[in-house]
Each structure stands twice: as structure tokens, then as C-alpha cells.
Amino acid sequence: MASILFVCLGNICRSPMAEGLLRQYANERGCKIEVDSAATSRWEIGNPPHPGTQKILKAAGVDVAQMFSRQLKADDFYHFDYLVGMDKENMADILAVAPPDKTAQVASFMSVVAGKEDIFIPDPYYTGDFNETKKLVKMGLKPWFEILTKA
């Protein structure tokens, strides 16, 4: 089974939402997958998810008590099978620090959603629209789950 790391700017909004919702999606199907999230920046290290993300995760039955922001690290490029950026800037930041011999595949979150491959997930920290983020993340749950469980 493959493993996945979701990456966004601060690791308090989009990537922990994707982490929690994908873990919940897998658990509901009786499948344990390795899923985590990280930030490209240092700004929020050690902080819990944003209250807007916590509200969405708690409504989905996801325990956020052990979720804290961390920064992307070199080991992640070898430990995880997929490093998934939530927007164009995240992708550029991930690729800028990727070791040349990385084993992880780097992809954008929506790249696996048919007809939505070129869409990026806006940061609700700035837009305030956590429901839009949830809607887009939910579109990617099944395709990412299928990729991870077929590996």
C-alpha cells in the first residue's frame, strides 16, 4: 500500500483537511493507509489546524487532537510515495527543495480528478471559504484512495 503526504503553505488549513478526510474515507472502507500533511513554510509549526478546518474535520468525525503543523523535510521525499501540493505555489516550493534522487512522486491534489486536473485549491486562510476547500478536497478522495490502494 502506498503512502501520501499532503502539502500546503502553513499546514493548518488545506493539507490537514485532506489528511483527515482521506484517513476517514479509508477507515470507512476498512482500510488503513499512511497519510500525513506538512507545510512549505515555518510559520505555523506546532500549531493545531485552523478553527475552520477543525470544524469541518470534527463534523466528519475526524479526531484533530494529535494534528499539529510541521514543515516538509528531506526525509519526506524518500518516506512517502506521493507528495501532493494543494496549489501552484506549493508545487513550486516542493519541487524547489526536492532532492534529485527523490523516490516520491510529486503531484498537485486535483491532478487525479477527471476534468479538474488544472484546478488548484484556494487557501481558505485568505479566502475564508472552508466549505469550498472541503468541496474540492472531497472530489479528490476517491481517486487518491484508489491510487494508494492499488499500489
Rank of each mutant, 00 (worst) to 15 (best):
M1C: 06
M1L: 13
A2W: 01
A2Y: 03
A2F: 01
S3C: 01
I4P: 02
I4Y: 05
L5G: 01
L5S: 04
F6K: 09
C8T: 10
G10F: 06
G10P: 09
N11V: 09
N11L: 10
C13L: 12
P16G: 11
P16W: 13
M17C: 06
A18K: 00
E19D: 14
G20M: 10
G20C: 07
G20Q: 04
L22G: 03
R23F: 00
Q24E: 15
Y25Q: 04
Y25I: 01
A26W: 12
N27H: 14
N27C: 03
E28A: 12
G30V: 09
K32E: 15
I33S: 01
S37Y: 12
A38V: 08
A39K: 05
A39G: 03
T40I: 13
S41T: 15
R42L: 12
R42K: 14
W43Y: 15
W43G: 13
W43F: 15
I45P: 04
N47T: 09
N47P: 05
N47C: 00
P48L: 02
P49S: 11
G52Y: 07
T53I: 03
Q54A: 07
K55E: 13
L57I: 08
K58T: 15
K58Q: 13
A60R: 12
G61C: 12
V62R: 10
D63I: 09
V64S: 09
V64C: 14
A65K: 11
Q66T: 12
Q66K: 14
M67L: 06
M67E: 01
F68H: 08
S69N: 04
L72R: 02
L72P: 06
D75Q: 05
Y78M: 06
H79P: 01
F80M: 00
D81R: 02
Y82K: 02
M86G: 12
D87P: 12
D87A: 11
D87W: 07
N90C: 01
N90T: 01
N90I: 03
A92V: 11
A92H: 11
A92S: 08
I94L: 04
I94A: 03
A98R: 04
A98Y: 07
P99I: 07
D101L: 06
D101K: 09
K102P: 07
A104K: 02
Q105D: 06
Q105I: 08
V106L: 02
A107G: 00
S108V: 12
F109Q: 07
F109K: 08
S111N: 00
V112F: 04
V113L: 03
A114T: 11
A114R: 07
E117V: 12
E117F: 09
D118K: 12
D118V: 06
I119A: 07
F120G: 13
F120S: 08
P122E: 15
P122R: 15
P122D: 14
D123R: 01
D123W: 05
P124G: 03
Y125S: 00
Y125H: 14
Y125E: 06
Y126A: 14
T127Q: 13
G128C: 03
G128M: 04
G128E: 01
D129W: 11
E132R: 15
E132H: 15
T133D: 10
T133R: 02
K134L: 15
K134Y: 15
K134D: 13
K135H: 11
V137F: 06
G140V: 11
K142Y: 00
P143H: 01
P143T: 05
E146S: 01
L148P: 02
T149Q: 08
A151H: 05
A151E: 07
